[in-house]
Computed example of a mutant assay.
Amino acid sequence: MPKVKSDKKSRVHGEMSKQGIFFDKGAGQHILKNPMVITGIVDKSAILPTDTVLEIGPGTGNLTARLLEKAKRVVACEVDTRLVAELHKRFQNTPFKPKLEIIVGDVLKTELPFFNVCVANIPYKISSPLVFKLLLHRPFFRCAVLMFQREFAHRLVAKPGDSLYCRLSVNTQLLARVDLLMKVGRNNFRPPPKVESNVVRLEPRNPPPPINFKEWDGLTRIAFLRKNKRLASLFKQTSVVTALDKNYRIHCSVSNISIEPDFDMKAKLEAILVEEGLAEMRARNMDVDDFIRALHAFNSKGIHFT
């Protein structure tokens, strides 16, 4: 891979280049270099001296060093073994070494340890699955302060009626309070990414809403197939009717409920939507409470989405 050309290389990046270690932009390796941004992220994380911090993608350790100053312990998860070696080297002769644990591997395939706060600069391609891995993690953590590409961050906080409002928005807001914290320009990274970024704080709702998230996820998948279409139209689609009919028959079999010979799933779904005042609603305008009401209405009539 050719060297990354830049007139203003950070000291750490320069040292990495001398050792033949180059960042893979395709893998989302953009190292945060601006100390002011790093300070802002650490400050907004409100780390306590007793906290264990999970850092995902520590890179060369610029943010890690500041986290180690604040926290009791930092667990850093890094998939790139070259960067793992650099992290060990950077902290091996410092007072921070006993406070740092490095987990080598893909964070999506790794069992996460206990932590109080999560801090991460996240590659775009794993943003969505990582958000839900964190929000479904137990025991609960206090907050996560995460760097995302700007459009993804705006989708997380989008409200009903917004152009960016989508299944990601409502699923995230079901499980957490989401706030935009700060904008971060592309020139704060080495190498610079093609897009701007935002720092977001997620605070898990504890206790979480008393619903089955897999059921919820199944409902929102259907509703957002075409977010501008009426629910009445979406629940008439053959693939949707077929899948829900299969689930219903399994439910009835397990619950020892008899099914009429002329049972019509399409008619049942339509009746539920009309009865609950949901038929004319569209996902683009439905908030978390609307979806909770819809899920309860279907489940109470034996309609399940998993």
Rank of each mutant, 00 (worst) to 15 (best):
residue 32 L to E: 01
residue 92 Q to W: 04
residue 84 V to G: 06
residue 134 L to W: 06
residue 306 T to S: 14
residue 180 L to F: 03
residue 248 Y to E: 00
residue 230 R to P: 00
residue 77 C to L: 15
residue 101 E to H: 13
residue 138 R to K: 15
residue 186 R to V: 00
residue 289 D to F: 13
residue 168 L to W: 03
residue 226 R to F: 03
residue 92 Q to C: 05
residue 273 L to C: 00
residue 126 I to G: 07
residue 1 M to K: 01
residue 279 A to H: 07
residue 236 K to Y: 13
residue 60 T to V: 13
residue 286 M to C: 12
residue 253 S to K: 14
residue 301 K to S: 03
residue 167 R to G: 06
residue 173 Q to T: 04
residue 64 T to L: 11
residue 79 V to T: 13
residue 5 K to Q: 11
residue 139 P to G: 11
residue 189 F to V: 12
residue 268 K to E: 02
residue 173 Q to E: 05
residue 21 I to P: 02
residue 284 R to L: 12
residue 54 L to D: 03
residue 71 A to Q: 15
residue 105 G to Y: 13
residue 205 R to S: 09
residue 182 M to D: 08
residue 268 K to H: 15
residue 299 N to G: 09
residue 183 K to F: 02
residue 203 E to L: 09
residue 191 P to K: 15
residue 132 F to D: 02
residue 97 K to C: 02
residue 104 V to T: 15
residue 211 I to R: 06
residue 197 S to V: 07
residue 49 P to A: 11
residue 243 A to E: 13
residue 119 V to S: 08
residue 42 V to K: 10
residue 263 F to Y: 15
residue 99 K to G: 10
residue 253 S to M: 07
residue 266 K to A: 14
residue 94 T to W: 08
residue 234 L to T: 10
residue 108 L to A: 14
residue 306 T to F: 14
residue 221 R to F: 04
residue 215 E to A: 04
residue 62 N to S: 06
residue 221 R to T: 02
residue 281 M to D: 01
residue 244 L to E: 07
residue 47 I to S: 13
residue 12 V to T: 14
residue 266 K to C: 05
residue 200 V to Y: 05
residue 96 F to C: 06
residue 216 W to V: 00
residue 199 V to E: 08
residue 145 V to W: 10
residue 82 R to C: 03
residue 110 T to V: 13
residue 186 R to S: 14
residue 94 T to V: 10
residue 243 A to R: 06
residue 234 L to C: 01
residue 47 I to L: 08
residue 286 M to D: 02
residue 23 F to P: 01
residue 116 N to F: 10
residue 103 I to F: 14
residue 260 E to K: 12
residue 138 R to W: 02
residue 100 L to S: 15
residue 104 V to K: 12
residue 126 I to V: 15
residue 134 L to S: 12
residue 267 A to C: 11
residue 31 I to D: 05
residue 295 L to E: 11
residue 258 S to M: 13
residue 49 P to F: 11
residue 38 I to R: 12
residue 105 G to W: 01
residue 48 L to N: 00
